[in-house]
Design a protein around this nucleic acid. Structure first.
Length: 193
DNA sequence: TACGTGATCACG
DNA sequence: GTGATCACGTAA
């Protein structure tokens, strides 16, 4: 079952980021599915400096200002596509970055896309998982209740298994970089390094 | 630790 | 128009 729009449109992005742990991200390209269990996420809110939307709408971040339940995909460092889910209501630009997956479905296709012959750590990082699942920048703004990309109910992960840490790679955010808004499954080998 | 890589942003 | 910057990944 696809998660409904109401899941994404709640106002607490940190809660949504936490609840996304254990759920299944699925993409469909030419009717071939690839999927994985979400094992690492980060929450971003327009109210803090770590967020692309902090200074208001721009050409890149404008989909974050739409209502929750769509994708936000952008190119990072000139070569990596990063995948977020937009949350909250229209005008409240929150999003959750999906940082790592444990592969479930379509592993052969993932390996082909990554140009490797082992499944090892193939989706352990935000730039890697998009490539493995075929997500590119033109998917920006796509509805998450669509047949292209969606998130399904997955395993229930006990709260005691979920760890909160500071987010990665946002030193520019000053003290907001210290917020414990990165969530991951303890001891899961697919979490990024 | 160093750097590839190119779109985007803020400046003016 | 243009230069600085960057929510990463890999090699070393």
């Amino acid at each position: 079952m696809k998660l409904p729009q109401s899941f994404y449109q709640r106002s607490n992005v940190v809660q949504v980021a936490k609840e996304l742990i254990g759920k299944i991200l699925v993409t469909s390209v030419n009717d071939v599915l690839t999927s994985g269990m979400i094992v690492e996420t980060e929450a971003y809110s327009f109210k803090e400096r770590g967020c692309h939307a902090y200074k208001g709408p721009t050409e890149r971040n404008k989909v974050m200002f739409e209502k929750g339940g769509i994708s936000y995909v952008y190119l990072c460092y000139g070569m990596h596509h990063l995948f977020n889910v937009v949350t909250n209501q229209s005008g409240k630009a929150d999003a959750v970055l999906i940082r790592a997956l444990e592969p479930i479905q379509g592993m052969d296709l993932m390996m082909e896309r990554m140009n490797v012959n082992t499944i090892k750590r193939i989706t352990s990082g935000p730039g890697k998982l998009t490539k493995a699942l075929g997500i590119i920048k033109s998917w920006n703004g796509v509805d998450l209740v669509s047949d292209q990309v969606w998130i399904e109910e997955g395993e229930k992960v006990a709260a005691s298994k979920i760890k909160a840490d500071a987010r990665i790679g946002i030193d520019y955010a000053g003290e907001d970089a210290l917020l414990p808004w990165r969530f991951s499954i303890k001891d899961n080998k697919w979490v990024s390094k």
